[in-house]
C-alpha cells in the first residue's frame, strides 16, 4: 500500500476524476473513490466513510452519500455490489445479522445513528423500510397498519387509530380496494396490494425517510407501475432511497442515482446525467447494459 501511495503521488491523477473544485473539499477527501457530488442540499441522512464487514467479507468499502429531504435517490448496481447492505445500514437493520460490523459516520439529522446512546427503536421509527418480498404480518389488514401506531403509542383512542389507519391506507393508494374488508387477513391480498399494505404500514408511523429494497422485484408490471406512481406521490413528503435492479425504474422514479460496484459507490449524480452522460467508465458500461 505504501508503494502504491507513493506511485500515485508521482503520476498525474486519472483523467476521469472530477476536478476538486466541483465539490466541497471534505466530501472530496472522504469520498475519493466516488465520482460526482455525494452531498445533497438539505440532507436528512449523511454518510461519511461507511464500511460494513460480514465476518471477513468487506461488503461496503468507504462509502459516502447524502440523502436530501424530498428527494428520491436510486441505488443501482450489479448483484452483490453492496447497495442493499448500504440501505440496511441506514436504519440499522444490519444489527439483526450477527456477523455484521458497521464502521463509519452515519448521521440522521446530524445525530450519529451508531452512537452508544442512540435508541435504535426511535431511529427505525424515523427511517422506515419496505422489503423486497411483501411481508405483511399474519394479522388483519387493519392490524397490519395499526401495528406501528400501537407500539409507538401514536393514537390515544380508537378514533385516532382509525384516522391513522385510513390515512395511511389512503396515502398508499390502497383504501378503495380494502376499505370493506379491513378485518380480512393481510396475507390474503395480491402481491402488489401486499406491498402497498407494507408501505401503508411504514408511513403509519410517520417516518422521515423510507428505504425501499427492490420493492417491485416480486411484482407484475401493473402492480409495479402503481408502486412507482405511489413513490412519486410519497416523495413530496418523505425522503426515499430505493434499491432497484431495473434501470428503467431508477430513471422513472428518482431524482438522483448512485451507482454501486463491488462495495464502492462509483458515481453519484442527477439521474438524467447518470443515464445519459455518465462520467465513469464502469457506470457507462452498466447503464448501457454492457454488464450487470
Amino acid at each position: 500500500m505504501l508503494i502504491m501511495d507513493k506511485a500515485q503521488d508521482v503520476v498525474a491523477p486519472p483523467a476521469d476524476t472530477v476536478p476538486a473544485a466541483a465539490v466541497p473539499a471534505d466530501a472530496q477527501r472522504l469520498a475519493s473513490d466516488t465520482v460526482g457530488d455525494v452531498t445533497a442540499k438539505d440532507a436528512v441522512i449523511c454518510v461519511r466513510g461507511g464500511n460494513v464487514f460480514y465476518g471477513d467479507t468487506h461488503a461496503l468499502i468507504n462509502v459516502s452519500l447524502d440523502i436530501g429531504r424530498n428527494e428520491v435517490i436510486a441505488l443501482i448496481g450489479p448483484s452483490g455490489c453492496g447497495k442493499s447492505t448500504f440501505l440496511r445500514c441506514l436504519n440499522r437493520m444490519n444489527d439483526t445479522i450477527e456477523s455484521a460490523r458497521v464502521k463509519g459516520d452515519f448521521r440522521l439529522d446530524g445525530q450519529d445513528m451508531y452512537a452508544r446512546d442512540t435508541d435504535v427503536v426511535m431511529l427505525r421509527a424515523r427511517v422506515g423500510m419496505v422489503f423486497q418480498k411483501p411481508n405483511p404480518f399474519p394479522k388483519s389488514i387493519y392490524e397490519n397498519v395499526a401495528y406501528g401506531a400501537r407500539i409507538h403509542g401514536l393514537a390515544a383512542n380508537r378514533a385516532e387509530l382509525d384516522d391513522i389507519v385510513y390515512g395511511s391506507l389512503e396515502r398508499a393508494g390502497l383504501v378503495d380496494e380494502v376499505k370493506d374488508r379491513l378485518d380480512d387477513p393481510g396475507t390474503g391480498l395480491s402481491g402488489g396490494q401486499q406491498q402497498r399494505l407494507c408501505i401503508a404500514r411504514t408511513i403509519a408511523v410517520n417516518p422521515e425517510v423510507i428505504l425501499m429494497d427492490e420493492p417491485c422485484s416480486a411484482l407484475d408490471p401493473i402492480a409495479t407501475a402503481r408502486i412507482e406512481d405511489l413513490i412519486d406521490e410519497l416523495s413530496e413528503k418523505y425522503a426515499i432511497a430505493i434499491v432497484t435492479h431495473s434501470m428503467q425504474q431508477a430513471a422513472r422514479v428518482s431524482n438522483r442515482t448512485a451507482y454501486f460496484h463491488l462495495g464502492r459507490i462509483i458515481e453519484v449524480g442527477p439521474t438524467d446525467k447518470i443515464f445519459t452522460n455518465p462520467a465513469h467508465k464502469l457506470t457507462e458500461d452498466y447503464v448501457t447494459g454492457r454488464f450487470g
Partner: peptide
Amino acid sequence: VPQAMRDGSFALGATRSETIKRVVLPA
C-alpha cells in the same frame, strides 16, 4: 416464523420484546 416477519416488525421500530409478543408468538 419467517425472518421477514421479524424484519418487518423491527423496521417499524418495534423492540425485540414487542416483536416477539405481537408478531412472532401469534404467528
